Simulated assay, not measured.
Amino acid sequence: MSGFADELTDLVRALAKEADPVPDGQLSALWSNVRELGLTGIGIPEDKGGSGGELDDLLVVIRELARAGVDTPIVEAATAAFAIGAADADGRFDTVVTHDELDLSGPSLSGDLGVVAFAPLARRAVVIGVAGLAVFELADADIEAVVDIAGRPSGRVRLTDSPCTHADVHADAAAERLVLARSAALIGGCWGAYDMTRRYVVERHQFGAPLVEISAVTGNLAHMAVGIRTAEAALRRAVKVAQGGGNSALRRLSAAATARIAAAQCATAVARTAHQLHGAVGITTEYGLHRFTRSLWAQRDADRSELSWCGRLGAAALAVDEETFWDQLSA
């Protein structure tokens, strides 16, 4: 880490204090500040149009925005900027989508990409496949505007011979960056839900005592915290592997997949436990818990699902010899 983690944390938390709740289908006004400060370009060298710094500095920003309950396109925009450079300075940004079946090698694309986060507002979309990467202008696509479970403006995107270009960045590198960024957002959202739940059970009294004095409540809080710390450890290892030289493609894949799986599992458990401990108040619109849990559900299932990553990790394990498999388990 570059040493700016504390400064970035303080910056994002200060910005988040000014953020107001956002109606479904709209972007937070804070997003323009995030872009103007160059936060989406962290982890990209300045000579390539980025803001400098390191990958884990970017993950700090992503984590803290999610922890504050501010849902922005930073995961998508930062990944797209890594793959193809920053969007033009017109207030727009680029988004990303993963798709394992489209042929991304030609000069055009045709097919249904499904629901793409922030598609109605973005300029371009980066399609990340198993072995390829393609970029197209969203103006060349048929977009049916929808709002996803988190309330984010999204769109069902269909392509018919839409012109596309190809970036120099390898698809595996872009996919790895997306996985790490998504995992950081999930961890931040988990911390946000945990913080809110902990405050509630400390302040809420039942039978003359705070809820936190009930052993079952305390135990559930502890399970939440342990799960988040476990996901954090997996993400730290994945970042270390990604930034370390000489690591094999298998090691990078297994580290990134493990981080994504741990973060997804944690998101499911934290969202469920947070609502259980809040009781009925936790499902009301007026109470802010849904800002965290809806985002956790949306991002948990974004890109490739937890099940898909488990399948890829298992297939990679089956494809290697016993000695290599043991090295992966014990490294």
Rank of each mutant, 00 (worst) to 15 (best):
L250V: 00
R300P: 02
G227Y: 09
C164V: 13
A141D: 08
F207E: 11
A66K: 06
G50L: 05
T285M: 11
I228K: 02
R156E: 14
R177Q: 13
R294A: 13
D195N: 01
D195E: 14
D94M: 05
R260W: 05
A234W: 09
L58K: 10
F93E: 09
W309T: 01
A139F: 09
D6L: 08
L277W: 03
C310D: 14
P163Q: 00
D47M: 00
V281L: 15
G53C: 00
E286H: 12
G244S: 14
K48P: 05
F82S: 07
F325L: 14
E306P: 00
T95Y: 02
I74N: 08
M1W: 07
D20Q: 15
A125R: 02
T324V: 02
V281I: 15
E46G: 04
A134M: 04
R13T: 09
G155E: 02
E7H: 06
E306D: 15
V169A: 13
D24H: 12
G132M: 06
A256V: 03
Y194M: 07
H170E: 15
D20T: 08
E36D: 15
V116T: 01
D168N: 10
A14I: 06
E306N: 04
I128N: 07
P45Y: 07
T268E: 15
A139L: 06
S110G: 10
G244Q: 06
A280N: 01
S51E: 01
N33R: 13
E144R: 15
V75S: 01
Q299E: 14
A316I: 09
A145E: 15
T258C: 06
I228E: 10
A14Q: 14
L109S: 12
V60F: 03
G38Y: 01
L211Y: 05
E306A: 11
V226H: 12
L39E: 06
V241E: 10
A269V: 04
L8A: 02
R304F: 07
G38Q: 07
G219D: 11
W326K: 05
C310H: 14
R124M: 04
L133C: 12
V270D: 09
T160I: 01
T72N: 10
A216C: 06
V22E: 11
G288S: 07
E306H: 04
S330W: 04
A78Y: 10
F118P: 11
L313A: 11
G52F: 09
E322N: 10
D103M: 11
L318K: 11
A234Y: 12
L289Q: 03
A298V: 03
K17Y: 13
E137T: 04
I214M: 11
V226G: 04
R294D: 12
G43F: 03
P153F: 05
D112T: 04
A89T: 10
E137N: 15
A145R: 15
R312N: 03
R237N: 10
D100K: 11
I44E: 13
R35M: 12
H290G: 09
L250T: 04
A264Y: 06
F4T: 03
N247Y: 13
S162E: 07
L329H: 02
V75I: 10
L313Q: 03
